[in-house]
Computed example of a mutant assay.
Amino acid sequence: MANEHPTPTTARSLLSAIQKITPASKPLPGYENKIVSRFPMGMCMDECYPGLYIGDLGAAKNKDYLKQVGITHVVNTAQGNKFATVDTDEAYYKDVDIKYLGMKLLDIPTANIAQFFEAGADFIDEALTSGGKVLVHCFMGISRSATIACAFLMLKRRLGAQEALETLRKNRSIYPNDGFLNQLADLDNKLRKERGEL
């Protein structure tokens, strides 16, 4: 029986859902048959949804590694030259034929990440529907990148915010900041209203 009084999504409910999940321990993509430590290699990324990877600065800047894994598209959610940003752009990947989308965002609760939800979701969807693989990254691959990946799952795969975050968290230790969780909750409530669920 349908819930007669559905509850709006809140940042607190999303945070609670994330905290209940311990991510699976998996080999570094591209090294499935070898035991390698991610961090001494200076890069870390995980496949969190078929063809969708979330990763850090080290993975994003290692073009040879990205080609080895088969990455065709990169979304840099931390483009810039400030602290905790990643100084890549379209030209950086030109020689390896990787398509690029950059977002200038700081990992602070007041940052307006929602302005990039549609563009990020469209870019990721185009990558996956064309048979590609996409790396969505920020500095550590925890907050900005996870938020954009979550918005993609909500906008293009019709997952609720909680289900989307749980899908990602099962595969990587993601942790969007409180402001980003608020913006994901707002998106979730908007989509639920459009579907007649709220």
Results as ranks from 00 to 15, higher is better:
Glu90Gly: 11
Asn62Glu: 11
Tyr100Gly: 15
Leu14Tyr: 02
Gln68Ala: 12
Val86Ala: 11
Tyr53Leu: 11
Gln162Ile: 06
Tyr92Ala: 00
Phe152Lys: 00
Leu184Lys: 01
Ala121Ser: 14
Leu28Ile: 04
Gly141Leu: 14
Thr77His: 00
Asn33Arg: 10
Gly196Tyr: 08
Ser25Ala: 08
Leu181Glu: 14
Glu194Asp: 13
Gln115His: 10
Leu105Met: 11
Leu191Tyr: 05
Glu118Gln: 12
Arg157Asp: 07
Glu4Asp: 09
Leu181Ile: 06
Thr9Gln: 01
Leu105Gly: 06
Glu194Ser: 06
Leu155Met: 13
Glu166Ile: 06
Ile71Gln: 05
His73Leu: 02
Ile124Lys: 06
Leu101Cys: 06
Arg172Gly: 10
Ile21Asn: 01
Pro8Cys: 02
Ala164Ser: 11
Arg144Trp: 03
Gln79Trp: 10
Lys190Ala: 09
Lys34Asp: 15
Glu90Arg: 07
Lys104Tyr: 01
Ala11Trp: 05
Asn177Met: 08
Val75Asp: 00
Met45Gly: 09
Phe83Asn: 14
Asp46Cys: 05
Ile98His: 05
Arg169Ile: 10
Asn189Lys: 15
Tyr65Trp: 13
Phe180Asn: 00
Pro109Thr: 12
Gln183Tyr: 03
Asp64Leu: 13
Ala119Leu: 04
Leu15Ile: 05
Gly51Cys: 10
Lys156Pro: 06
Arg158His: 15
Lys34Tyr: 14
Ala161Phe: 00
Leu106Asp: 10
Ser13Phe: 00
Ala17His: 11
Ile124Cys: 01
Glu118Phe: 05
Ala114Met: 08
Tyr53Lys: 06
Asp122Ser: 04
Lys26Gln: 13
Gly120Trp: 10
Val136Met: 04
Ala2Val: 13
Thr129Arg: 12
Glu197Ile: 05
Gly102Glu: 11
Thr77Glu: 00
Ala78Gln: 04
Leu187Ile: 07
Lys67Leu: 13
Tyr92Gln: 06
Ser143Leu: 09
Thr22Ile: 13
Gly58Gln: 02
Ala11Val: 02
Gly120Val: 11
Leu168Gln: 05
Phe117Ile: 04
Leu181Gln: 04
Leu155Val: 03
Glu166Arg: 07
Ile174Asp: 02
Ala59Lys: 04
Leu57Lys: 10
Ser145Ile: 08
Leu128Cys: 11
Ala149Thr: 02
Ile71Asp: 08
Gly131Ser: 11
Gln115Phe: 02
Tyr100Asp: 03
Leu198Ser: 09
Asn171Ile: 01
Val134Trp: 05
Ile108Tyr: 02
Arg157Lys: 14
Ser130Lys: 15
Asp87Asn: 13
Gly160Arg: 11
Ala119Ser: 12
Leu159Gln: 15
Ala78Asn: 09
Val86Pro: 09
Ala185Ser: 13
Glu197Ala: 03
Ile98Tyr: 00
Leu128Pro: 12
Leu181Lys: 00
Val134Gln: 01
Met45Phe: 07
Tyr49Gln: 12
Tyr49Gly: 04
Leu52Asn: 04
Leu28His: 05
Leu191Glu: 09
Glu166His: 07
Asp97Lys: 10
Ala2Thr: 04
